[in-house]
Design a protein around this nucleic acid. Structure first.
Lengths: 127, 127
DNA sequence: TTGATATTTAACCATTTGGTTAAATATAGG
DNA sequence: CCTATATTTAACCAAATGGTTAAATATCAA
């Protein structure tokens, strides 16, 4: 009865909304790796990592080639591009906004306090 | 006992992983709007939209100024930039990959069939 | 004060998510 | 064939998600 999301872009963003999965992608940007190798850095169980991989695969961000009993995983670039493209549509808008912010900060007599309390968690990049 | 995600980047991607919320952001890129105006295009109830707005606000993608009883919502660019920055780290990698794909397609005698069946849902942009 | 309008809060529900452990499957190598 | 290794599947669980309806809150305006 409830409506759930399964469109490709939602699936991609959903896949990116987990730090473990983002870390796995970061690892794979360095080169392909087996499931065991990908799981090694994490405290969680192998089935948990296996699930993460399936989510990434379902989002089209990762693909694998089976080589005997080892699955070699590698990045699949196209889905990431779709996400990047979506965000890029807003680029001009938010760059203009950030320019305004920068100008405000430069000319304002009381620079930081008002901005700080008005902007919820700026949020800096991560792994 | 279980580990849940609350880091800013995960929160942002999570917020983007819903078509209604992306449509709301798209609407706000055209200019600020009240909650009622934002809710109008959707079949869902007002509380449902209100929840979506709170998610976007919690992700730092949206802010509002209360003007009497009407809340005027507008985009907040910084969180989106953090997400864009994260994806951009992979840009060089997947652009190289896509170049390879393009070259493959150009030189291959059987161009589309193998690619099609190997890449889960390419996924084109959306609202 | 009374009533309409704008929006949120509360309580509820079903599905999804991210994890677990235990068991199954497949392959590699004596 | 037997056993170790690589990985997935199954069954389960608690919390989060996306929706609902009904009630609360706040403001405007007569």
């Amino acid at each position: 009865m409830v409506k759930y999301q399964n469109d490709p872009l939602s699936t991609t963003f959903q896949a990116l909304a987990d730090p473990t999965r983002r870390a796995i992608l970061a690892r794979l940007a360095l080169g392909e790796a087996s499931v065991g190798e990908l799981a090694e850095p994490y405290a969680m169980s192998l089935p948990a990592v296996s699930k993460h991989l399936k989510v990434l695969e379902g989002a089209g961000l990762l693909a694998r080639e089976r080589d005997g009993r080892v699955h070699r995983c590698h990045l699949e670039p196209q889905a990431m591009r779709a996400a990047a493209d979506w965000i890029a549509e807003y680029r001009r808008f938010w760059e203009a906004q950030l320019d305004q912010l920068a100008r405000y900060l430069e000319h304002s007599p009381t620079p930081l306090s008002r901005i700080k309390e008005n902007s919820d968690e700026p949020g800096e990049p991560e792994t």
